[in-house]
């Protein structure tokens, strides 16, 4: 293959509550369309299994399940829950995906309904964090589920086999970011099958999958990852050059908690999605965004929350980053970067 024939093509679809972009360096457009078709259909399947909004998703079924009930779940949901359990244990509970009731209270997620309260229409296709109020209004006529207490994932579910779980206590699970990261990982896996390493005739060299800021790069090209400047989110600063790695960022710069009055006045009024179950503090370090680089994008996303809610100078955070071969970049309001 002649490197001179290479071109970078991009495609984007609304999925996982955001816009997912796939950018590939390829020799021809047909290779690009084949590879992206396959990757996007994988992303759609994951979206449907793990949406908190869709009434027939695994997470909605879990929210509806009774104590002791055994549910069959999609392999993707099982894998993500297994990883979530692992990160919850290793972070001593800082990472907690059972905070959905609090997110519902803050108006960030719709309240789960009994199956009879399901809504119809096409929203299922690309439901994201969408029109919560509207959906809630629609659902007033249906039966709301009682709000479960926020506990921990391991006290709420037990995974069995590779496709089942047993409900130990009523729980609302929001896999939000970690599911988005998992989806990026799976899309990368599909795309890898189309690369010259997987298939010499493919014409695909390298690529990036970016799901609303959770991104991963693969192939033999190096990519410079930029992170938005927290106090000026219309600017981005280059932070690291990566190869075969993923990156996720958590920040509140588009929320009304931004410390910048001008940004705040133009922002959509939106509460923070970060729920601190342990009531821990950020230690003495003040920062506005946390980016984590790791081989696995699902891990990177989960660890941004762990670093954000934990103390970045603690042994606890050092150990968990090391365990997952992860590195973190924390950016403060002045745009200074602290690396971990």
């Amino acid at each position: 293959m002649n490197r001179g024939d290479l071109q970078t093509l991009k495609r984007a679809k609304p999925l996982l509550g955001t816009v997912v972009e796939i950018s590939l360096t390829v020799t021809d457009e047909s290779a690009f369309v084949r590879a992206t078709d396959a990757a996007f259909s994988r992303l759609e399947a994951i979206h449907n299994a793990m949406s908190f909004h869709a009434p027939d998703s695994d997470l909605s079924r879990i929210a509806n399940a009774k104590r002791g009930e055994v549910l069959a779940i999609a392999a993707d949901t099982w894998n993500t829950l297994a990883l979530a359990l692992d990160i919850e244990a290793r972070s001593n509970g800082i990472f907690n995906p059972t905070v959905a009731p609090e997110l519902v209270r803050r108006g960030l997620l719709p309240r789960p309904m009994t199956p009879s309260g399901s809504f119809n229409g096409t929203s299922n296709h690309i439901v994201g964090r969408v029109g919560v109020q509207k959906l809630n209004a629609q659902r007033l006529h249906s039966e709301c589920l009682p709000v479960p207490p926020i506990q921990s994932l391991h006290s709420s579910i037990a995974l069995a086999g590779n496709d089942r779980l047993r409900l130990q206590a009523p729980v609302w699970i929001d896999l939000g970011g970690i599911a988005k990261g998992y989806a990026v990982d799976q899309a990368i896996k599909v795309l890898r099958g189309f690369t010259t390493a997987g298939d010499a005739t493919s014409g695909l060299v390298s690529g990036i999958v970016n799901a609303g800021g959770d991104l991963a790069v693969f192939g033999d090209l190096e990519h410079v990852v930029s992170v938005r400047v927290p106090s000026a989110p219309h600017l981005a600063m280059p932070v690291a050059a990566i190869r075969e790695l993923s990156c996720a960022t958590t920040a509140t710069y588009f929320l009304n908690t931004a410390n910048n009055a001008e940004v705040r006045s133009h922002s959509i009024e939106k509460p923070s999605h970060l729920v601190d179950v342990r009531r821990s503090t950020q230690g003495n370090v003040k920062f506005e965004s946390v980016s984590v680089f790791a081989p696995c994008c699902a891990v990177a996303d989960a660890l941004t929350k762990v670093v954000w809610l934990g103390d970045p100078n603690s042994i606890e955070i050092h150990d968990i980053l090391q365990h997952y071969q992860a590195s973190a970049a924390l950016i403060n309001a002045a745009g200074e970067v602290m690396r971990r």
Partner: peptide, 29 residues
């Protein structure tokens, strides 16, 4: 000097929300 990418592909951090597209799709159906 701040180098700025004119390309969203490798920017990590919250980007667009699909909310309005989802609404738009519902209308188009």
């Amino acid at each position: 000097k701040l180098r700025v990418s004119d390309d969203i592909s490798t920017i990590s951090g919250a980007t667009m929300s699909a909310t309005h597209i989802t609404d738009g799709v519902r209308r188009i159906v």
